[in-house]
């Protein structure tokens, strides 16, 4: 597994991914730096984080996870690499697992950049309270965790389709409804693509939509959909491999 991950790393080194990663944190940084605040003190940090999380989590984060998946599979589609990879003495499930791990590693880097963006924005505004690393970290970690089911589904789509456009289309079809779903107290808790947003915006900041849903519900939905997507993806991949 470690060797598979190392090989993913080599393939990624010269990729456009590195240009892509800072885009969303940068935009979130600008937004949370320039937005107007209603409150001061510790509550101000909460607002800054919420603005950044909205910008990043609404569409960017779910879409980027899909792009990561497609980029990681592109190497294999482009040059008959699946054949080569699966002809090596490795288990297909391990190959699949390494891809998923690589997606999540990229998402982790993205979330770390987000933490820096939020902290930077708050400091630049001169907020008087100290940087609430705990809250920012929890938000980033929650968003990362909520990406798991999306990564699993997009990996399935990216292995199934040769073209880059098809998995992206799948991703967009499911992500765009976020714009409506996030407003709905009844539906949002059950919709996997809006989970990264819900997980990232600090509880009780906004009095509308599903932003007050309990952590337990979110974890159940995230875990459940992850299992479903992961199992179907693995089943498909392993079957196709033999």
């Amino acid at each position: 597994m470690a060797r598979l991950l190392a090989s993913e790393w080599i393939k990624l080194r010269r990729s456009i991914i590195w240009l892509l990663l800072p885009a969303s944190p940068l935009l979130a940084f600008v937004a949370s730096w320039r937005s107007s605040l209603d409150s001061g003190g510790a509550q101000a940090w909460r607002e800054v984080l919420a603005v950044g999380a909205m910008v990043h989590g609404y569409l960017f984060l779910p879409l980027l996870v899909g792009i990561f998946a497609a980029l990681l599979c592109r190497f294999e589609h482009a040059s008959g690499g699946w054949k080569q990879l699966l002809a090596l003495p490795v288990r297909p499930a391990a190959v699949y697992g390494a891809k998923l791990a690589a997606i999540m590693a990229l998402a982790a880097i993205l979330q770390l950049l987000m933490c820096a963006a939020i902290a930077g924005a708050g400091l630049l505004r001169g907020l008087d309270a100290p940087v609430p690393w705990g809250m920012i970290g929890m938000s980033a970690f929650g968003g990362w965790l909520a990406c798991l089911p999306l990564a699993a589904l997009q990996l399935l789509a990216s292995t199934a389709f040769q073209s880059f456009a098809a998995p992206l289309a799948v991703n967009v079809v499911f992500t765009l409804p976020n714009m409506l779903v996030a407003n709905s107290r009844d539906f949002a808790p059950w919709y996997p693509w809006v989970q990264p947003l819900l997980a990232m915006v600090p509880q009780d900041t906004y009095g509308f939509g599903a932003f007050n849903v309990s952590l337990e519900t979110l974890l159940a939905v995230i875990g459940g959909s992850f299992l479903v997507f992961l199992c179907s993806g693995l089943l498909y991949f392993v079957r196709r491999a033999v």
Partner: peptide
């Protein structure tokens, strides 16, 4: 097509 589609996204 990764680059054009990323730019598009």
């Amino acid at each position: 097509q990764a680059l054009p589609l990323t730019v598009g996204t």
